[in-house]
Design a protein around this nucleic acid. Sequence first.
DNA 1: CGTTAGCACTCTCATTACGAGAGTGCCAAT
DNA 2: ATTGGCACTCTCGTAATGAGAGTGCTAACG
Lengths: 364, 364
Amino acid sequence: MMEERHRGTPIRPALELTDRQRTVLRAVVEDYVLTAVPVGSKALLGRYALGVSPATVRSAMAELESLGLLSHPHTSAGRVPSDLGYRLYVESLMREADLDQSDRLMIRHQFSQVQLTSNDWLRLAASILAGSTRSAAVVTPARSRRARFGHVQLVALADGTRLLVLVLRDGNVVQRRLDQMAIQRELPDAVLDQTELDLTAAALNAELAGLSAPQVRRRSDKLPALAARISTAVISLLEEADSVVVEDIFTDGIVNVLEQPEFAKGSKLRPILEVLQRSDFLEQLVPVLTRSGGVHVIIGRENTNDAMHEVSLIFAPYGAPDRALGLLGVLGPTRMRYPRAIPTVRYLSTLMNELINIHYGETQ
Amino acid sequence: MMEERHRGTPIRPALELTDRQRTVLRAVVEDYVLTAVPVGSKALLGRYALGVSPATVRSAMAELESLGLLSHPHTSAGRVPSDLGYRLYVESLMREADLDQSDRLMIRHQFSQVQLTSNDWLRLAASILAGSTRSAAVVTPARSRRARFGHVQLVALADGTRLLVLVLRDGNVVQRRLDQMAIQRELPDAVLDQTELDLTAAALNAELAGLSAPQVRRRSDKLPALAARISTAVISLLEEADSVVVEDIFTDGIVNVLEQPEFAKGSKLRPILEVLQRSDFLEQLVPVLTRSGGVHVIIGRENTNDAMHEVSLIFAPYGAPDRALGLLGVLGPTRMRYPRAIPTVRYLSTLMNELINIHYGETQ
DNA sequence: CGTTAGCACTCTCATTACGAGAGTGCCAAT
DNA sequence: ATTGGCACTCTCGTAATGAGAGTGCTAACG
């Protein structure tokens, strides 16, 4: 069961390790994660009293290395876990516990503390993730894969402009000012007072409920002239919502990554920072959105993105597959505290789930 | 005139420099900005044919150093401009030109290119600033110093929830779902259908136009029960808008700073990154919002914030003082290309001004 | 047969030494 | 006032050196 929980790329060879090999691998990973120093046989025994001699550990290490689970920075330096070693560790060696009750309470408390808008939730989630895991955190807003028309309202403002408020079916609200001059030009007869606006909104609501951008486009010729004109704005808003797969991402704790010795010199950090700002790297995670969910771990070179060959991602979706879905998770060096990060990400994803359900109600 | 344009902290002593000193200082600044290497007398002559001998340059440099305009990293290394040296350069030595016509066109083109929402403008502005100056760019949304009630609309959505849409007088739109359960609890008689919502909205609009959060709070007891209840949501939205002085900031090009040799090792970058994410550093610029405007330059230790003692800020406000105001600018090492950055920031601020006026109209 | 002790070997890393290079400051000459 | 000359200083890169840590292998051991 625990072995099945964290699958990323399915590169898991059917490795049969002896108990000793497993123990040594676990010790090496945990020691290296802690110290960031390649770990040698003697140093290992100093910290882990395994009840065997250094020579025995050495031979176990040599075996693990030939299996591709450990590697040598150079001859005669300690061992370092390979990506595969980390994967094995994550999948079957790690002693993973759920988050402490106290941690959970503290996190929940922070969310309850403030009267928050949904953007603030995301910011807070990122901040908590970053702080709790000492890694960089990324949170994307919950969005439908495909934006659908929910409900529209046209409002004549006091200052004379006209506002289109579109509530998407996933509950997000977007709005845009109408370009009155253009409308007047194209439809000289249009009145655009609140009465006509209400009529137009009613027509749009009756015709477009539940439709996606292309569907609205097809339907729009059947609408009355003004409604048809305004539907172009609706289409543009829907398309915008579609295009924004992972646009507004909230990051926090980049500094934490900077602190890690492997990224101490800026040039190492550079590509990551670049990728993090452009957010392309989340694309490889989009399949997660469609699948069942749960925590996903991507380690080092398992990343499709070249810039991320030295970092691990731990991500989970939140929301509901048929409704709005978002992504949250952390990014850090492959030498990451997986047993801490994974439960944290998992807990935050269930928490955000709850929040979203309370906030948006259970409606479909 | 040009001397008057960029004032930050008014630390300008009445320095009378000879022509030669001015020429040498300018050459040192420009060479150092270009090469990042402390510049010596001989090296300077190699690049700037000043028509004098190295010894003469040396004595001029020694004079400039005793005036506090240059400094020595150590005995027998080249000279480096001090913060004061940069300031003098910026205020009276720099040959500043407006941005090239071609640059201006290119920037304008990018803005006209896309159908943009206002957030996208900010993102684009940050990206252009960062790219054009090779520094980190920061852009904040235009906000009123004090949020004022403009116009409210209450909408009953198809899914049964009730939405409060508040248009601020500065033209920004915010919205929030109403907590129906709480309302029903407090006001069991309330009906909350669209008719009643419209009435309530009308009452609110009549009573609250132009008011700030505390004013609304004082006025709310005079409102009908439901309107009064809903005015608490209005207050909370207004207060939120007030509190968010510089919350949603858009940054871009942090990577550019990373590339500068002075920040090559991450530890140098760390405090800056930290400060940049928390955006406190903009607070020292808030006075700019009240004053007349124009480009402001803050160099090195002129920064109130300790973390920024090695960086310069070049910022300008945009918008109109009586309406929404935003900040935009760049952040880089004190060794910055001021003659490039300043016109770029200036141009972008006027451009954003235009955009905001077109977008929000000329209404008050 | 698995485990262990011993040992020769390798590779890194910090320290030290040293010379080249660049730059300064000063002084005397122009 | 400017300049050429010169002694002096400081950094930086390179090379040499030795300590330390770790490995792999082999032979002995229970």
